[in-house]
Design a protein around this nucleic acid. Sequence first.
DNA 1: TAGCAGATGGAATAAATATTCCAAATCCAA
DNA 2: TTGGATTTGGAATATTTATTCCATCTGCTA
Lengths: 278, 278
Amino acid sequence: MTDDIKTGLTAPQTIEAFSSRLADLSQGLPKRLRQCADHVAANLDRIAVSTVADLAAGADVPPSAVMRFCQIMGFAGFSDMQRLFRDAYAPALPDYATRLANLRGGARGGAGRLLAEFVEAGRLSLEGLTTAVDEKALERAVSVLSGAGVVHVMGLRRAYPVASYLAYVFEKMSVPAMLHEGAGRLDHRHAIRPGDAVLAISFAPYSEETLALVADARARNLPVVALTDHKASPLARMADPVLTVQEVDFGAFRSLSATLTMAIALAVAVGTARGTQG
Amino acid sequence: MTDDIKTGLTAPQTIEAFSSRLADLSQGLPKRLRQCADHVAANLDRIAVSTVADLAAGADVPPSAVMRFCQIMGFAGFSDMQRLFRDAYAPALPDYATRLANLRGGARGGAGRLLAEFVEAGRLSLEGLTTAVDEKALERAVSVLSGAGVVHVMGLRRAYPVASYLAYVFEKMSVPAMLHEGAGRLDHRHAIRPGDAVLAISFAPYSEETLALVADARARNLPVVALTDHKASPLARMADPVLTVQEVDFGAFRSLSATLTMAIALAVAVGTARGTQG
DNA sequence: TAGCAGATGGAATAAATATTCCAAATCCAA
DNA sequence: TTGGATTTGGAATATTTATTCCATCTGCTA
């Protein structure tokens, strides 16, 4: 082999760069490497979850051919190449825990740095919101809530700011709503009448009080809309339209950016739906 | 172990089945296994590209706990469980800009569109936060609050979710704090003692109750940290470290993304400052 | 508080997986 | 064809990753 530039010294840093290098190379490649290139090009999205052996079998070449392929693409080896695809798919979660540990240990860096981290977590959460949103569920939630008599909002602990914000927006938009906060251990569930609906917000670990209110509403056949962290949460199992929101957590702490954004969108949608039809 | 039914004999064959078994189990699980369950539930989409060690680190448990978790879920081991997710692996989604565009375009006027707009507003607000932040003021706020006896948090209306969130985080971090909410027209200002500090949150139009509390504290020479919308607000004029946050508004509504992000950063900074020095 | 069942962490081991290396095969130019 | 350069396959090795096992710890019941 001549000292060709094609043994690129620099590995592609993005999927685009990868694809474009792939296109450049695939012409002048010997048979086996060409097979690799073709197979990889046709299965870009499976690289993240494949092994060398999988790829080799798919391309009908021995594993060592796949290794050579990775190297002429500029990577140190298959693992190195795979990392590109894994990272692209799962944006940096793992080092958040360590970052917080650093902040705690070092103490310097201060509040400004901490703020920057939370801003980043918030941005990621918002991005995630656009990918993960279940539009069907969202539309259904809007229609359930805008058809209800009174909307009963409940959320405690970390979900309480969300609940109180929803109550605020509903009030501003003249949507009849009631915030159940469990203050003074008072139980207002008798205030829930036929025709009403419940909007429950809860994240792990789920507050018993919220679950109890939902169970109660469910027993009376009232519709329950849930805003929670995942589809398998105890809350989700009792609710019908289930809206899930994933917050990127930063150490032990989660911002509420995505959750509140979902909340305001829901509330405003309900408000306008009621306004235009009533 | 007894021949419990909970060691499900059949492994889930689909992601749905997996989620639902997860929900069934997660109630009566010991601590470490519960941590695994929660972390897995919140990161379902990363299982396909994770290793046991990754998951263990994320859930903050030793690898062996993850193995036990896989087994009680009915799988032979981690690899067996991972296969389910690898087979169902859906390739990385198009990038953020595209998704947002889709969401915006889809279902004219629908809730999805609203959500897209609020997401965008939130992101812009967060961007603004990093550029506009007054680090000096932030550092000062941290030092004032971490030196205080009790932190008295007050914010009403739109600022109330922020105040309640701050109270929540302070509690989690063992920072003595009190949330003044004006419920029942009760006035708790006598609870503010020398050595304490006030953290007031208010946006236009500024709540009288908040301003009154601040004026009172000021008259008694107690430090007041303000979180508000601009430096010339009535609140800002009475407070010393003033933190300002601009939210990008969409229509008549503002999200709270930037404000809450600032709030959590502040609270965590105060919590860690107290932790390390006390 | 003693005794027990279950839970836990970590070290030891097993298995899977990536990676290297080199002898053999192939190709190409004279 | 022959020599030299390139490509190829697979066996050997290194590395990472999963899995098991057991001593210790914890929380509970009696």
